[in-house]
Write a protein that binds this DNA or RNA. Structure first.
Lengths: 246, 246
DNA sequence: ACCCGCAGTAATGTATACATTTTATACATG
DNA sequence: CATGTATAAAATGTATACATTACTGCGGGT
């Protein structure tokens, strides 16, 4: 759902990709109605693949079907965005608990620990500055590894679904932000939570793992709320903020 | 998503409805590939609304897109079905916790208590037999009221999504079953949990509400597992069992 | 026996014409 | 002034022809 399965071979895949970019980049604001004809013309394709692309993005949760037909770019209040992050925490918590209770292989644990080491390496010797790009990358890897540890297809699927909302992705708020001090501290806390989470899973402490994952998401949630989306005309680097209207 | 918003006015809505029935009734087994042309011919419509209907059912989670195009009826292992019920419990638990922590109106509490009374009335004086039909109906009402108490659109939406899997619906296993004694007792337990859940929400005991809702779903989960789906050629009355293959 | 490639067939992908419904506007009416 | 209604415009719904891609089975090769 999230990955680029789009081989970009046919018009529909290309259209889906393009449209998704428009939405995530904020080229079309939340609440905007998408007209088949307009979309088709803009992408220089016929209405059929345009419609199909919109259907797929509706499946992804980026668009909404209107009762009378057609699609609207889904819009989210700040509360919705915060709730989406919290929900990710709930589901990651469930995945973590299931992984802990069912047990995971040595190889999976080791792979996760390697990611943790990579994340540790992103913090400089002085403890002050850090490599945001790499951190963001390995952070995504860590969260993917967590999902893979849960053997429930159903839980994995719903988790992927929630993560496909751009601002609910684990790495959504990991970017170089202007007011860096507090944010930098929150990353240190987050990384500590990563370590504890891996440990809890390894020790098969299900409840602990669940609660750490939840709290970990709330760290991200706090970053969203302090970012004050609509006010400061926040960095466009942050994906999907155009969908947050209220 | 679950409700019949389908006005049945146009071909697509009709096709969506028909196809959904086929799938839930088990007329097409899980894993079956649905060919546009075959579906279109069977419903005496053209390929376009047939395709559109399949896209919508994919959105609902009843169909899956194949990589090379086209759709397959989604199939679930028994574990998947059990996980889906557990996931419903997780999400209902989250809804219950949020409702408890945020607080709900007097009117909402009273409405839920009325439903509880209606459910109580389904148990006969003797405590032995009961009205399954009514119980099933009011049980669905109770669970809907619970969802409504949660003010998070995001959580509500995902919960509705999970509930749209036919066997994950709260009332899925509330039917007159042959081996009635143990099942009947489980309904008594379930009703007790309903009472406790309402009380916890009213008292704003978030964690308690969450845990009761989880445990409540596990009661349903146990009913699924004892039903031994593939073995006894279980009652066709139970919806969506045809999707459970393993 | 197994693998590979090459049709032929059957499916999905795409464009487009036409049908139907929705929506916007102007106007009449209480 | 508000409300409802008629009507035109513009959107989506539907069917279908044609294009392209995926599947299947056969035959040749090693």
């Amino acid at each position: 759902m999230t990955a680029d399965t789009e081989t970009r071979t046919n018009q529909t895949s290309r259209a889906t990709y393009e449209l998704r970019q428009w939405i995530i980049n904020g080229d079309v604001a939340g609440g905007t109605r998408l007209r088949e004809i307009a979309v088709a013309e803009k992408l220089k394709i016929s209405r059929t693949p345009a419609r199909e692309a919109m259907a797929r993005l509706a499946e992804e949760g980026l668009l909404e079907r209107m009762g009378s037909g057609g699609f609207v770019v889904r819009s989210f209040s700040i509360r919705d965005a915060a709730d989406a992050i919290e929900l990710r925490g709930i589901l990651e918590g469930t995945a973590a608990r299931m992984a802990a209770e069912e047990g995971v292989s040595r190889a999976e644990i080791d792979a996760m620990k390697e990611t943790l080491a990579n994340l540790d390496a992103c913090f400089l010797e002085t403890g002050e500055l850090m490599d945001f790009e790499k951190y963001s990358e390995f952070n995504a890897v860590f969260h993917d590894q967590l999902v893979q540890m849960c053997k429930s297809t159903i839980v994995r699927r719903e988790l992927e679904r929630v993560k496909s909302l751009p601002f609910a992705s684990p790495s959504a708020f990991v970017h170089d932000q202007p007011g860096g001090a507090a944010f930098h501290r929150s990353l240190i806390v987050a990384q500590q939570q990563h370590h504890e989470l891996a440990q809890a899973i390894e020790n098969r402490e299900g409840t602990r793992a669940e609660m750490i994952a939840r709290e970990h998401a709330r760290t991200a949630r706090a970053n969203l709320l302090t970012a004050q989306i609509p006010q400061t005309g926040v960095e466009t680097r942050m994906p999907g903020v155009g969908l947050i209207v209220n």
